[in-house]
Amino acid sequence: MSEVKLTAGTRTEFGKGAARRIRRADLVPAVLYGHGTDPVHLTLPGHELLLALRTPNVLISLDIEGRSELAIPKSVQRDPLKGFLEHVDLLLVKRGEKVTVEIPVHTEGELAPGNFLLEHVLNALPVEAEATHIPEAVTVSVAGLEGGASVLAKDITLPKGVSLAVDADAVVIQVLAAQAEEPAAEGDAEGDAQA
């Protein structure tokens, strides 16, 4: 689990105009909330935040005017066309505290020979983990699986201290037999033309 340090400033201006001014200064408006505290409105350095968010569930160590806080990203809004960060919601966490997050599911290995498709029913697996030890991803072996096979949440080996936050019988990955369309027989086409 990676921890990224960012220096944050507090903000008192709100609304579209203020948000645009903040983004023009290569900063991102953000809000920090959690533990029953009042939300704190922040500005974060745009480029550093963008790099930090490349890691799923990154732990962010915030320096807010000399005060240090730990947070994880809860919601990230991006511009739908250009992809730049518009706003980030951060959840305040403490060391040793358990949080519920979704971690990416990766697959490895080759399916059994045949015409099969691999379907990710869940692209991310909801788990509960200590805030400072959130796994970056889980890897599932699909080696040798055939059509009709599925991998349930309870079949996935989780790191120590991590538990499922989803029904144990939830399907995470399933293998489907590919459906191929049968070509129309030539005799049928000729019969239809003569009729």
Results as ranks from 00 to 15, higher is better:
E3H: 01
E3G: 06
V4L: 07
K5P: 01
L6H: 12
A8Q: 11
G9R: 14
G9P: 08
T10G: 13
R11T: 11
T12I: 06
A18Y: 02
A19E: 01
A19R: 05
R21K: 15
R21P: 12
R21D: 09
I22P: 05
R24S: 11
D26F: 08
L27P: 02
V28I: 12
P29Y: 05
A30N: 10
A30E: 09
V31M: 12
Y33M: 05
P39M: 04
H41K: 11
H41C: 03
L42R: 13
L44M: 08
G46N: 04
G46V: 00
L49I: 09
L51W: 03
P56D: 10
L59W: 01
I60Y: 03
S61H: 11
S61W: 05
D63E: 14
D63K: 15
E65Y: 00
R67D: 10
S68P: 01
S68R: 15
E69T: 03
L70T: 10
A71G: 05
P73I: 14
P73W: 14
P73S: 15
K74I: 01
S75M: 07
V76S: 07
V76Q: 06
Q77D: 13
Q77N: 13
K82S: 15
G83R: 13
E86F: 01
H87M: 02
V88Q: 02
L91N: 11
L92R: 15
G96K: 07
E97H: 07
K98G: 04
V99M: 05
T100I: 14
T100L: 11
T100Y: 02
E102P: 01
I103E: 05
P104W: 03
P104S: 00
V105L: 09
H106F: 10
T107A: 03
T107E: 04
E108K: 13
G109Q: 06
P113I: 13
F116H: 12
F116L: 07
L118T: 09
L118V: 11
V121M: 00
V121W: 00
L122W: 03
A124S: 11
A124V: 00
V127E: 04
E128M: 09
H133W: 01
H133E: 12
A137R: 15
V138A: 10
T139Q: 13
V142Y: 06
G144V: 02
G144E: 05
L145F: 06
G147Y: 00
A149T: 00
S150P: 01
V151R: 03
L152C: 08
L152E: 11
L152K: 12
L152G: 05
D155C: 09
D155F: 08
I156D: 03
I156C: 09
T157P: 01
K160P: 09
G161Y: 07
A165G: 04
A165K: 03
D167K: 13
A168K: 08
D169P: 04
D169M: 03
D169L: 08
D169N: 10
A170W: 04
A170Y: 06
A170S: 15
V172E: 02
V172I: 14
I173F: 02
V175C: 07
E181F: 03
P183W: 00
P183L: 01
P183Y: 00
A185W: 02
E186G: 06
G187F: 09
G191H: 09
A195D: 15
